[in-house]
Design a protein around this nucleic acid. Structure first.
Lengths: 313, 313
DNA sequence: GCGAAAAATTGGAACGTTCCAATCAAAATC
DNA sequence: GATTTTGATTGGAACGTTCCAATTTTTCGC
């Protein structure tokens, strides 16, 4: 690999000058700039980001943790993060944790060693120590689509789950449903908790309580689209028709939800916008070496398709 | 951030000794080991991977490029790569290129600067320069699910597309189909080309040629499942029934393909196995600083579900 | 208890940058 | 023409590791 020194020698200048040319940081005569640029082109030199990072004490990398990349919502989140980050010159390290505490710890350790400048958490286990571990070592953290947190050092960017759940329940209640169930991915998962709370609250307002799905529910609200789609699958294999026997509602509006054979009633959220904001927050904090401590709710709209209808008589 | 030196001072030994304790590389007395370990625990020290990388001239990171993370097949590939890599102590940098040459170039530049130890390519643009650019700088590269290549420095791990296409065509031909079409994602994409070749060959064997989908095809073979599912959507919105009017076949067997409302006939491939092998190859090559130059075909099986049937009379 | 061998520990030189203070050259001021 | 100002360029000291040769300490055979 060619180094700054190689380029300097070839161009007949000092390493400092080459560094100045590359980073456009100091004054350098037009003539020498040309010489150096030629030398760079000839040697095919690429600055060594590792050496730069060591000196700068900043890796220009951020981490993102998702529970399941296979879920298009998280995939979109990851894609958005990657795009926004690389536009700012940051690399992205992904951890697919499946909400396993041990995997989360592995990721934390690896990232701490690699000195990531910040972390975006898209999902985590129930009583995860991940945020605390990172924050305690002054790594800025933002929670994306994970609901509130009591740690003021944490950045939070989320959907307006309460409003969304109210809209969903209103829709179902209006159709005549009174026996509503909620399904959530893993009990161990952190997300969904807040949505469940919103769901319960919206029910309570109408003097209802959640029931179990096997308890004769006429409508089930899933905490995300993939879960909703899996629920449809399960119901139909049991011989129940959706929406004739039971209505199903999702959350996220993944592209698939609009598919002709699915047509899922769901809540639209903008993963791309969310990831853009999350990256801005975390990179901003990293650059000023402070914590994020900013919270924000994204608007959300109900999309009624064909998995919801009147309950059976 | 605490450094090796901080730990050394606290434990009252030299930095070399601390280094030896951490890496278990040289002999160190039990007593001092304990002292050092205590100091590490007290300071919450994490070795600085950046400094280590600089010295070792190896980043312990690999890159993976996928055209679209939102496609569950690539998501599975990415997840598999991440898991296998982190088990070996490697970090993974992901690039979602959408098969855009400019994005590919950006990724190449960023990765070259970050000195990735190897790259796994899961998809790329048609005449991509990515492999050459990387190989010329001695970065080992393996193509995953991308078909052959004429560059002997390239590692290749792929499905047995020819066998798969033969099986698909045999299945459709046996059902009575004679007017078959092939749909591929973007024309600009590299993948699918080989599958199309296999498709054509299997047709030719039966004295048939591919026709356009709008030309009254009774069966369409898609180059992957997501494309197949999108095709079903398009057909049904046009008022055609699947499989009564037209049969559809996919490729990959993403989890969704088994869904009750989809039940896609497809070819099962093992993204996880593929990513495991790809990581082994690329890491092995990196460790011995050589190119990969190994090619391997993974077996593949036809899964007949409910999107294929007899052609209309 | 002596010398040699083995075990344990150490300082310093890399790795490839950036950044600062210092130097050098050229232009401008009086 | 001596002096200041400005513009260009430079060497050396970090950044936090690893690795090697060298040194110090311990152990052991006799």
């Amino acid at each position: 690999m060619t180094t700054l020194m190689d380029v300097a020698e070839r161009a007949g200048v000092s390493k400092s000058t080459v560094s100045n040319v590359i980073r456009g940081t100091a004054m350098v005569a037009e003539e020498t700039r040309l010489k150096v640029e030629r030398a760079i082109a000839e040697t095919g030199y690429h600055p060594n980001a590792i050496a730069r990072s060591l000196k700068a004490r900043s890796s220009s990398a951020i981490g993102i943790v998702v529970p399941d990349l296979t879920n298009p919502f998280y995939a979109q989140l990851a894609v958005g993060v990657e795009r926004a980050a690389s536009a700012l010159g940051y690399a992205v390290l992904t951890a697919n944790t499946e909400c396993l505490p041990s995997t989360e710890e592995d990721a934390a350790r690896a990232w701490l060693e690699r000195r990531v400048d910040g972390v975006i958490i898209g999902g985590m286990s129930l009583a995860s120590t991940l945020p605390k571990v990172l924050l305690d070592r002054d790594v800025p953290v933002v929670l994306a689509s994970l609901g509130e947190s009591d740690d003021p050092r944490l950045g939070v960017i989320d959907h307006d789950d309460a409003a969304a759940m109210e809209a969903i329940v209103e829709h179902l209640y209006g159709l005549g449903h009174r026996r509503l169930a909620f399904v959530s991915d893993h009990l161990r998962e952190h997300a969904g908790e807040r949505r469940y709370l919103g769901f319960k609250k919206a029910l309570k307002k109408r003097r209802l309580v959640p029931i179990a799905i096997d308890d004769g529910a006429t409508a089930v609200v899933a905490h995300n689209d993939m879960q909703a789609i899996a629920t449809i699958d399960r119901l139909e294999r049991r011989g129940l028709r959706v929406p004739d026997d039971v209505s199903v509602v999702g959350f996220d509006d993944v592209p698939l939800a609009a598919h002709n054979r699915i047509q899922l009633t769901t809540v639209r959220s903008d993963a791309t916008e969310m990831s853009r904001r999350a990256v801005d927050l975390v990179v901003g904090a990293a650059r000023e070496s402070r914590h994020v401590s900013h919270r924000e709710l994204l608007e959300v709209t109900l999309v009624v398709r064909s998995t919801t209808g009147r309950p059976p008589l």
